[in-house]
Amino acid sequence: MKRKRLIWGVVAVVALGALVGYDLLKTPGQSEQVEIVEEFELQPLIKLPAIGPFDLSVNKAVVYLWITAAVLIVFALLVRRSLRQEPPSRFRVLMELLYALAHDGIVGAVMKSGRATWFPYIAGAFFFVLTANLIGLIPLPFAHHHQLGFYTATANLYVTLALALCTFVFTHFAGLRQNRGRYFINWAPSSAPPVLKQLIWVIHSVSEVFRLVSLAVRLFANMLAGHAILAVFFAMALIFQSVLAALVLQGASVLIYMFEIFVAFIQAFIFAILSAVYIGGALDQEH
């Protein structure tokens, strides 16, 4: 039974890859020249007026964000509906498991105080990033010329930067609300000698900015690299123009795809748990 499922999964992924490859191939004038980078460039799909520096045109990333939000809303409604069912359905048990992971595995494991206050944000970030990452592994027709293609909103630096900014802002907001004026003073240990204390304070301030950048870049680079590698494997068969190479590369791409599912999960987990660590650290400062 299990082996059968696994075989079907492998067949489905291979078929999917072949479909994407064929899709790329049939497009006129592009059959031999595959531009992987183009997959990650954004062209506006719907032109909207810019407000100041903010160009609100709808592009591929925005569509993926919408899809992510829509999927989350559908799941939220399904969860609410499933709660009326007794005994619990399989779906509900799975959702409870995921909820328990966010509640006990991320927030409960890392934060000491303010768990109830910050749980919605951290769990929301976890599920948002997880859903966005996983949707990126489903081929959707938003590539160039409406081909099927892999893309994910989290493979764009400015999407992850916006998410990381939320964590950054909430961290300092939580710290200031909890510790008032002492928050910034507590960045340096009070036991340190004066000059060293100021040095530590400066280092800490810089590290706060680097936390923001690393949080954004980690997620972005992971998803981008994963998708780039997947695209390379799918496209390489076209570049080599060989059936044997296509078979080998398709087989390898199945493994990469499985690894990408794992990475999608791990990156969402790390993003959420680091957000929890930062916010928890701001709440319970060491003096």
Binding site: F54, A69, A76, F127
Partner: peptide, 25 residues
């Protein structure tokens, strides 16, 4: 740089978190 995309991200993320909190969490 795509500041507009950041705005879109914040909007969709905010809506998703709100809906998740109210209807799921």
């Amino acid at each position: 740089p795509e500041p507009g995309l950041m705005i879109w991200t914040l909007i969709t993320f905010g809506v998703a978190v709100l809906v998740l909190t109210v209807f799921a969490f």
